[in-house]
Design a protein around this nucleic acid. Structure first.
Lengths: 343, 343
DNA sequence: ATGAAAGCGCTAACAA
DNA sequence: TTGTTAGCGCTTTCAT
């Protein structure tokens, strides 16, 4: 099979240790005579020796690999379907990992039922966890994790205060959206979110939404919170019953797109009769008709930051985990307009 | 540190072998009494034992991991910038890998200078190689690879006939594009490609382009081949000199977009004065103005197919490597029109 | 039914 | 300067 240190050692007439020292000990005090070193190097070249990184990593009890972990409760995210959320985030994660010399692994089982199996099985030096669903399964998995881990889209306190967290300033984002709508004259505003009993970030955004409505003297009831399930049939039901709002804010672009498309299927003009705002503002928004106004978060930078934090932690940093909060913006496109504006 | 088989064995009062058998030998003839098995299972649960997959893989000399390898000669592809090419492909690769129980790893060095280091370092059971640049570096790396490998965007014969290949029917795609343009009355058609001395797929597409021009009685000269370098300044130079064509076909969407955008900067109407066709037809085409007519290839399916071939090969399939060719289509959008049509 | 031995390829620690 | 020993955690083989 493959050429090992042993083979090279045999050919060069030395012990394997010497070969290891010559070939891998870099600048260190190699303490091998130049003559032997040359012989070793020559033997290695002739045999086409390449270090077995798996063995080296096993021995060193490290892998230089970071696992990307998706909490249970979701389907596998797609890079090129619907919202570009995952693609943006991944670009940041990849950038950060490569800059730090780490590889990135996507695992099948990680993304489904049993994330905890990956959490200390020796394959990863650290994990990025992106899920803000605080289910028992997720909480349990996280509590049993014994490699460094960084949270994305959750606050450190929400998952045991043991892991640093990276998230956006939901307060700021939602505030910008509400102010934008109020400025356009909207008073009947709904908030749409996926049904996911304990998606903490959605609940955060909802709470902020309610607070800012109050600040503008708009009262919101439970009827203004539109919870949409997996199959999204609630969207049609909403329009069939007659839209109760002049504007909607959705907790992500995918859901916003669903409302946007179905509204038009029901011959409701967007933004003439209904303004819609999404969240994430990836280039996906450019593909919709009308183009989707959306709250932006710097997903790419957030991904890079998550990796940097993780690497620091892998390298032994034990400082108190804190929340790293990134600013949000509002990208105004074609899906929002002055209330009742039949353009 | 982490709990090992040994710890569980000690607690249960048996040898590590027994623990291994009980916990990991699945349905096999376990040949352990139920009483001992129970004791072992209980000890494992109490200690929170989880199998060290890295160790297991090391021992088994396999990793259940596939590496994604990008030949040298390019910058790292982005998932969410410009053309969505890489995102589409990755979705297929991920889908195929997960379906087969394999993980997918992206490595920093794989994507840059020294791909051969990853080609037999024990970290991967197989590799997907996507690059059709037949440089010495790439040819050398491929020849030294000693794990199963599948090529994407190249024919098996182009890289030593040792690896199965997955590519699209460039002949069909370019033919559709040329026929479309000819049908719209175009006779002066240029072909744009990145300068990359030995990008075999581009050269393929160019050859097919020339052939089909001839079939329609259009003569092409070297001046009709627009080679564009890294910084893409040749695009401006082309327009500054005055476009010599009424239509352009580009070998990918990114390059087509460059021509489309710069044309408009030079106040050339697209498609009124210049029709443009890209290659890949990802949703990126929807974001451009006008939307880009483009030759489609089923990147996602191609990615899945590549993984299936690779897995078969990893599992010992030794059948002759062949080319797996996928059909192309033409997605007609807004960037092509009847010649001279000043809409 | 259970266990002892051996080894995957590598390198840190110590010995010569 | 070089070599020997030992072991990372696991599982296959063979012995009991």
């Amino acid at each position: 099979m493959a050429v090992t240190l042993r083979d090279v050692a045999a050919k060069a007439g030395v012990s394997p240790v010497v070969v290891s020292r010559v070939l891998h000990n870099k600048a260190q005090a190699v303490r091998v005579s130049e003559a032997t070193a040359d012989r070793v190097r020559q033997a290695a070249t002739e045999l086409g020796y390449r270090c077995n990184v798996a063995a080296r990593n096993f021995r060193a009890q490290q892998t230089m690999t970071i696992g990307i972990l998706h909490g249970s409760g979701f389907a596998r995210p797609k890079l090129n379907e619907g919202s570009r959320y995952f693609a943006c985030l991944m670009d940041g994660l990849i950038e950060g990992a490569f800059r730090n010399g780490f590889s990135l692994t996507l695992c099948p089982q990680l993304l489904s039922e049993t994330p905890e199996h990956a959490m200390s099985d020796g394959r990863f030096d650290g994990l990025v966890w992106y899920s803000s669903v605080s289910s028992d399964a997720n909480l349990g998995a996280l509590s049993r994790c014994d490699v460094p881990l960084v949270l994305i889209h959750a606050r450190t306190a929400q998952f045991g205060s043991r892991h640093p967290a990276v998230l956006c300033d939901n307060e700021q984002g939602i505030r910008l959206a509400v102010e934008h709508l109020v400025g356009l004259g909207h008073r009947k505003i709904g908030f749409a979110m996926d049904v996911s009993p304990l998606n903490l970030e959605s609940l955060d955004r909802l709470a902020v939404f309610r607070r800012h409505c109050v600040l503008h003297g708009i009262e919101t009831t439970d009827g203004d919170v539109l919870e949409v399930g997996w199959d999204r049939r609630e969207v049609d039901a909403y329009f069939r019953a007659g839209s109760r709002h002049t504007a909607l804010i959705a907790h992500n672009d995918g859901l916003a797109a669903e409302f946007l498309n179905r509204a038009q299927a029901f011959e409701i003009d967007v933004p003439g009769q209904l303004s819609i705002i999404g969240f994430d503002s990836t280039s996906y928004c450019e593909e919709l008709r009308p183009r989707l106004t959306s709250i932006s978060q710097p997903l790419r930078e957030m991904g890079e930051c998550a990796i940097d934090l993780l690497v620091r932690s892998i390298q032994g940093d034990t400082s108190e985990p804190v929340d790293h909060i990134f600013p949000c913006g509002l990208d105004i496109r074609g899906s929002t307009a002055i209330v009742g504006d039949q353009k």
